[in-house]
Design a protein around this nucleic acid. Structure first.
Length: 572
RNA sequence: GGCGGUGUAGCUCAGUUGGUUAGAGCAGCGGAAUCAUAAUCCGCGUGUCCGGGGUUCAAAUCCCUGCACCGCCA
């Protein structure tokens, strides 16, 4: 039995994510996790919220709440929505956890001991009005170059000139508007990534089977310009993991915290510890997933993320892992995704453009979204969501091809044989041909799922559904019933078994519908069809079933038009 | 500005290391069937593979160049 450690990029805490975020990491990760579980493998699937940093502080301030309270609340909301989408995390953690605090400090201590951390004195802008240092992008003023009035501290959006915040005319804090700003010296820690450039390069170069998107982004950052740069890993903030060297204080770093990108990926590990703590398990139970000296040597670790997260996962986090000098599990495969666009433009969190996860669940059950998003996952390039495409895909694939198959089979059986798997008759050439085709297709499906070829998997699954309709058309039990009821019984018995088979195969994509079909067929036999012929005999003659309610309803033109206008505008 | 990505049928997209008449799903057209959520099944593609050069026996696929759209710039 293989062991799969699977993580999805952790979503930032300040608000509800849109469908583009969902399809770029959590959803395909869930697909893979569900598939591996269905194959009987051991899976630990983790995700969490990324909670630290200035945006969280500002969002909390805007909501009029203490930041920890705000984060706890938003975590609850995100966790609830994740459940709504049936994301099957073994644990949904928080980067602000005690476990992550300790582990982040531990890694910092190890990296310091390995000579990978450098203390650097910098000049940064301090706002007396806010009582804090301000990151460049929270400073605004008039551009000394072009006179643009709301140039940001790092760059003027009008003339694109790179700026130093101190050069801005009438510089002010965008947080409070205060103009009482000054330069202050402050000390920060830099992670010396550049020292590990060659090691990282060798590692990336060895990954021939990774998506080109992943390796090309990693190589760009490794080799662009002066090559991989060291990065500051601390900030003058209060909301974050306090800077410590393991358990020990870090002289000169009092009142500072680690920068989010340092502690966020460590949460992948800490999350496993949160999981064992929540379950009342021992440390050994999470370490066997994360420490190659404590049982993780046979673990295969796969990460899922959008392309914007690739640099952190291919370079920064590996520096933390490798640089620690300890036997932590390094990622084996990084599956990255391009962006999903919305109706001719980008999804926009700030402008409220597009469909957000909570809104999606308000208008349709999760299976509809899961199917469309996964079958259109932006794997090779950016892809696009349009309501027309969503409507036609969902109606055709789910309602017509799969849903109607279930309907026609169960209703025909009910009218001719009653709500029970009919007895009599035997398989002939059409059945053997069907088994042969399904065997070929199911093996292909498994291959694509194993390789995380999401779109290809969806397309193969759809073909497997269609094969049922093709078989019915050829067997025509409504016709054979008139002359040879036994033959019709064998044919419909086969068709009823196809429903169970489809439920098992489709579960990673559409878990709710799958469960409903299993219930309707009155079975809990979810054995994977390694032997297709045997799988098609799982429901024996005499077994009762119920005709399911409409498995997938259709999206009407009126609904589509309504949603189209509703989600084009601005979200409150 | 620098870097990167994308540009293939009306729509959404496949096209591995260059190699037979460039493919799938949807939409459209024609037919079959009537068990079913008017669903299903079968058949049907005269596409400047963004434009222009080049390499090659052979390019959607490699090189140069132009255009368009998009993203990133710590």
């Amino acid at each position: 039995m293989a062991r799969h450690l699977i993580t999805s990029a952790i979503p930032y805490i300040n608000g509800i994510k849109h469908l583009g975020n969902l399809v770029g990491s959590q959803l395909p990760a869930d697909l893979f996790a569900r598939f591996q579980r269905a194959r009987g493998n051991e899976v630990l699937f983790l995700c969490a919220t990324d909670e630290h940093g200035t945006p969280a502080e500002l969002a909390a301030a805007k909501a009029g709440k203490p930041v920890d309270e705000y984060c706890a609340e938003m975590w609850g909301i995100q966790a609830e929505i994740a459940k709504g989408f049936r994301l099957s995390f073994d644990h949904f953690g928080r980067s602000s956890s005690e476990q992550n605090r300790k582990l982040t400090q531990h890694f910092a201590g190890r990296l310091a001991a390995e000579g990978l951390i450098e203390e650097v004195t910098e000049n940064q802008v301090y706002s007396n009005g806010d009582g804090r240092f301000l990151p460049d992008r929270y400073i605004e003023g008039t551009c000394p170059n072009c006179g643009f009035e709301s140039a940001r501290g790092d760059q003027c959006d009008n003339c694109t000139k790179q700026l130093d915040p101190i050069d801005l005319i009438d510089a002010r804090s965008t947080i409070s508007g205060s103009t009482d700003l000054e330069r202050r010296e402050t000390k920060h820690l830099h992670l010396r990534q550049s020292l590990m450039k060659d090691q990282l390069n060798d590692w990336i170069e060895s990954k021939h089977d990774w998506p080109i998107l992943t390796t090309s982004i990693a190589k760009k950052w490794l080799h662009d310009g002066d090559g991989l740069q060291d990065r500051g890993i601390t900030r003058d903030l209060s909301w974050g993991v306090p800077v410590k060297k393991g358990d020990a204080d870090w002289p000169g770093m009092e009142g500072k915290v680690f920068y989010v990108w340092f502690d966020a990926p460590i949460e992948y590990i800490a999350c496993a510890n949160e999981w064992t703590d929540a379950k009342g398990l021992s440390d050994a139970d999470w370490q066997r997933w994360w420490r190659t000296d404590m049982g993780a040597q046979d673990v295969r670790y796969t990460q899922f993320m959008g392309k914007d997260n690739v640099p952190f996962h291919t370079l920064s986090f590996p520096v933390t892992i490798l640089g620690s000098g300890e036997p932590w599990k390094l990622v084996d495969y990084i599956k990255s995704f391009n962006y999903l666009n919305y109706d001719g433009g980008q999804f926009s969190t700030s402008r409220g453009r597009g469909v957000f996860m909570d809104q999606a669940l308000e208008i349709l059950p999760s299976d509809y979204w899961r199917w469309w998003l996964l079958s259109h996952a932006p794997e090779s390039s950016d892809s696009e969501f349009t309501w027309e495409n969503f409507q036609s895909s969902v109606n055709k694939d789910l309602a017509d091809v799969l849903g109607n198959f279930v309907s026609r089979v169960t209703k025909f059986c009910r009218s001719k044989f009653g709500e029970v798997v009919p007895d009599g008759g035997t398989w002939g050439a059409p059945e053997q041909a069907l088994i042969a085709e399904l065997t070929t297709r199911i093996r292909a499906y498994e291959g694509h799922m194993e390789a995380m070829e999401v779109r290809k998997s969806a397309s193969e699954l759809r073909a497997i559904w269609a094969a049922g309709n093709e078989y019915l058309q050829e067997a025509a039990p409504w016709s054979s019933f008139k002359t040879d009821p036994d033959q019709a019984a064998a044919q419909i018995r086969m068709a009823l078994n196809l429903i169970r088979l489809y439920a098992v195969l489709s579960e990673p994509f559409i878990p709710d519908a799958s469960a409903a079909l299993m219930t309707a067929m009155q079975t809990d036999d979810d054995t994977w069809p390694d032997d297709v012929a045997a799988a098609l005999g799982a429901l024996p003659a005499g077994l009762g079933f119920t005709v399911p309610e409409v498995t997938f309803r259709k999206i009407t033109d009126d609904e589509r038009e309504d949603w189209q206008t509703r989600f084009a505008g601005v979200r409150d």
